[in-house]
Design a protein around this nucleic acid. Structure first.
Lengths: 340, 340
DNA sequence: CTGAAAGCGCTTACAG
DNA sequence: CTGAAAGCGCTTACAG
């Protein structure tokens, strides 16, 4: 199985290497009959272009880095990159990315960035030409990777707004503030008089924004609310719900669906009825929203669509590096089910 | 930002390109003081080796393909590659792969293979040198990709046993048969007299094996059982449970946790108590096992460990292509919780 | 222990 | 419309 090269194809076709290269890259101005002869030679020899050789001259790898970034933290229950992978959220993001990447024959390389060394590795990976750009799924707002990439002029698009608003970086995000408001308004419209919010990890901008939107809306509506901390896990949702129930709330906004499920289970463990004694609204519209009874009313974010747009933005940026950063904020929608 | 090359570093260090290359690749037999000078020059110039140039000569990409394969099917509820990504199962596999790959600085490229063209693309990708080998997460037993890769002599390791036992391919898998037996034995030991199994998609070898193991055990124990079909989704688990309950079963084995959750919800919707009226055992020990009440008793497969071993096997194979195919079958364990 | 030189397999001005 | 030639940035025998 000695590998076939351009040279071999050229010999078989009786033309020069340059001509074969032109046919393969579908350059115009090659005589039709030559194209035919060359294609036949390619088929007969089973030729496949060597990517490294091509990359060396085109300076394109045909690959983008998908980075899941954040710090692991000490809390094993925390929202580190490891957990991100196992969360259906990441799978949905991957699926969305694929839908934009596949048609362009660009492939995603997965990388985790938790330590400083790993963050440097991300930059190096692009520098060495192994990938053309970065799709960054960054959770924490104190993550230094976005500004690192921006400083190093690495083409990058973020999933979720950048830590510093001033950073010249493209991103997609859902309007988390509006989502939090949607939850508050729905609970109020149901007649809830005493609200609670189960916050997400506050080092995440999205969790912060959901809470801010919820707060603003309750203030506007003149309803009291109490806050309990959570980590986005089912268990933390249950613990937070216990706190909130001790405060006598009758309506709860869980900052993600997993915690919403935990909240429902906790209420039921105490013999309370959802939504009659306490109503619960989640966030995400993930598969877990259907794993409880009643099913979870939730604020939906269109993750697949957002991810697809994210990839599209990066591809655009690679085609035209001069493009200014653009942000695409998606509207959340309320999905009403049984829990509120 | 003109790119720095070996040549530049060599000039700064006052040595030859070859020497710089040796230092970078940590070859022995370079004078200590030269090593120092070169490292300084590298630091000062900010040099990063060009991966394409290196690949061109070493014929190694430092990358492996992670392929999720299968046919999409007509049923939107079916178990296609798209759903595989969103399933926590895949996330756990990714996490496991990472743990073996990262220390070796090998990076996974994700690829979906649903159509024949995409299956060919997998082979081409390795042929063109874009990846050194393939980690294949293949669901369906009629998948042609394993034999295609084997025929083309592409280094590959499967997650789950190959469709044809005769194929000379390395793989890791859980002993699904033993797992099915574990479930049957546990239900029997609990005193269940009339069992049911919610089967997975039977085009998947694993689903088949779980059922076979369950069957063998019930036969051995002299207990009747009835079968209902499922697709691995929560909803299909509920539908199947409805069928089984109509048959009056008092113990159910769901071939995965999602269906187990669906089964519990269906029983409860009918006013039945789990586990008193009907006991339920799942398979996987995924996060969803904790999203229901009672929590789900389940047959655990050590996915992360299996995936890590899978990657280790491929790396080994790449280092020594002559190695014979090896199979690593992992033992399932029963995790007893509230549902059975 | 170090350097000069060949070569990996492509693409792309440059002539013609 | 086509070919000869240079060059992309490395690694690796081969001498010394």
């Amino acid at each position: 199985m000695t590998t076939v090269t351009l040279e071999d194809v050229a010999r078989v076709a009786g033309v020069s290497r340059a001509t074969v290269s032109r046919v393969i890259n579908e350059k115009p101005d090659v005589a039709p009959h030559i194209v035919e002869v060359v294609q036949e030679a390619i088929a007969r020899t089973g030729y496949v272009p060597n990517r490294a050789a091509r990359s060396l001259v085109t300076r394109r790898s045909g690959t983008v880095l998908v980075v899941v970034s954040g710090t692991a933290g000490d809390d094993p229950d925390a929202w580190g990159p490891g957990e991100v992978l196992a969360d259906p959220f990441f799978g949905r993001v991957s699926g969305g990315l694929m839908s934009s990447l596949r048609p362009r024959d660009v492939h995603p390389v997965l990388m985790l960035a938790v330590t400083p060394a790993e963050r440097t590795r991300v930059v190096t990976y692009v520098r060495e030409g192994s990938a053309d750009g970065v799709l960054l799924v960054s959770a924490q707002s104190d993550d230094t990777l976005p500004s690192l990439l921006s400083d190093e002029r690495v083409p990058v698009v973020l999933f979720s707004r950048p830590p510093k608003a001033s950073l010249p970086i493209s991103y997609v995000d859902v309007d988390n503030r509006a989502g939090g408001a949607l939850a508050a308004e729905h609970l109020a419209a149901r007649g809830c008089r005493s609200l609670g919010i189960i916050a997400g990890p506050l080092e995440m901008a999205g969790a912060m924004d959901r809470m801010a939107g919820f707060r603003e809306a309750t203030a506007r509506l003149g309803i009291e609310h109490v806050v309990a901390p959570g980590t986005f896990s089912v268990e933390s949702g249950g613990r937070a719900m216990a706190e909130l129930l001790d405060h006598g709330v009758d309506g709860v906004f869980a900052s993600n669906d997993n915690m919403g499920v935990g909240a429902i289970l906790e209420a039921q463990d105490r013999g309370l009825s959802v939504p009659d004694d306490v109503a619960v609204v989640g966030f995400d519209d993930s598969t877990s929203a259907l794993m409880c009874r009643p099913t979870l009313t939730t604020v939906r974010q269109p993750i697949e669509t957002m991810a697809a747009e994210m990839a599209r933005l990066l591809l655009e940026l690679l085609d035209d590096p001069g493009l200014p950063p653009t942000a695409h904020l998606f509207d959340p929608t309320l999905v009403i089910r049984g829990s509120a």
